[in-house]
Amino acid sequence: MAPKPQRRLRLRTRLPLYLLGLLGGLQLIVPDKIWAALLVGMAATLGVAYLWARQMRDRVRISRSSRGQWVVAGDLLEEDWLLQNHSILPVLWAVVRDHSDIPGYAIDRVATAAGEGRYTWRTQGTCTQRGVFTLGPCTASLGDPFGLFEVTHDYPDTRTLLVYPRVMKLPEFDLPQGHTSGRARRSRRATPETLLASHVRGYLPGDSLHLIHWPKSAQQGQLMVKQFDLEPAGPLWLVLDLDAAVQAGQDQESTLEYGVILAASLAAKHLYAGRAVGLIAYGQETCLLPPQSGSAHLWRILPPLAHAAASPEWPLARVLAQVAPDIGRGRTLLVITPA
């Protein structure tokens, strides 16, 4: 359940009260119609301003909503806002200030609404940095037409937003296949449809037509067919070096950010190719994610990469010694390090 907003009303300055006292004293000491008129006018103005401000405090609501709980770095974050005025008096101004900690997400706004009306708007911002951020809280400042009272609405409700690292398209390159266990080899059927293509060759009579590699055929000017390994590729372990001592650069132009993007991109590339991928990332938080296959596993790899932060506690040599028993033999280990 969202916490209730806090609403406050205060007099901006005590000057009107001092003027009322002064005019009242003058009317008692030196009675005159001028003092009486000024006294009545000042009291009426103060009363109207107070009643207006109370309506702004008690009868105005502001809400926000966004789509989804996560985005990818570089994506557009959108929020829909609503100012609902349940008073017969108009909202002459409402200064809405957002206190989210997302870098570059500045969405402050001045809104108005007619009596018993509503005002909607949409804010947008680009999520330039991966990580875990907070949407909210926000505050709204309102007032009366005379500027005598200030009304403040504090909305403490917050929501966590996870910004995943970007996944880039990588050039083609070969990695060692590694080995699967004997049981895994026996459990898989050695059919071309279930294995990874390793290279192409010229078409020979009897080759299945659905194995033709059409882009290569067009490039070579003759029919080319895919060749498959008889041994399925073993698991691939990605090791991201988060040792603070070897990192360089700042913010988005740092080796840390490049390493995170490369790890995410490699994971996506090999998972979509059907290979099992695991992740080792020891920094301010430790992550040892066993290899699994399937595109759904990418969404298990991306969250720890979004949290990844460098730490001096885990130099690469210590990490490799720590995880060696969990990796096993015959596995492909790909280390991403600026060292």
Rank of each mutant, 00 (worst) to 15 (best):
T112E: 13
A245C: 03
A184H: 14
T286Q: 14
A324P: 06
Y50N: 04
H153L: 15
L240V: 02
G206Q: 04
P232V: 12
R61M: 13
R186A: 13
S293D: 05
L11M: 11
T191N: 04
P291A: 07
Y18I: 04
D229A: 15
D157F: 05
A244T: 07
Q69K: 14
G21F: 10
D144G: 01
D154Q: 14
I107E: 04
N85G: 10
A197W: 05
T180G: 12
D207M: 03
C138F: 14
I29F: 08
L271K: 03
L17V: 14
A44R: 08
G104R: 04
P176C: 01
P290S: 00
P325R: 01
V246Q: 02
W70V: 07
P145I: 04
L230G: 15
L9Y: 00
I261F: 00
A184P: 05
G21L: 11
D108F: 01
A267R: 00
S311T: 05
L209E: 14
Q6F: 08
E79I: 05
L22P: 03
H153F: 06
L211P: 07
P338S: 04
T337C: 09
L262E: 09
I261N: 07
E313N: 13
T255A: 15
P31M: 01
G294F: 04
G221D: 08
G68C: 09
I102G: 04
T332S: 09
L26P: 00
S295M: 08
D174K: 10
V246P: 00
Y105P: 05
R97D: 02
S181R: 08
A310P: 06
G249A: 08
T45Y: 00
A44D: 03
Y50D: 06
L161W: 02
T160P: 08
L230S: 15
A306Q: 05
A264L: 10
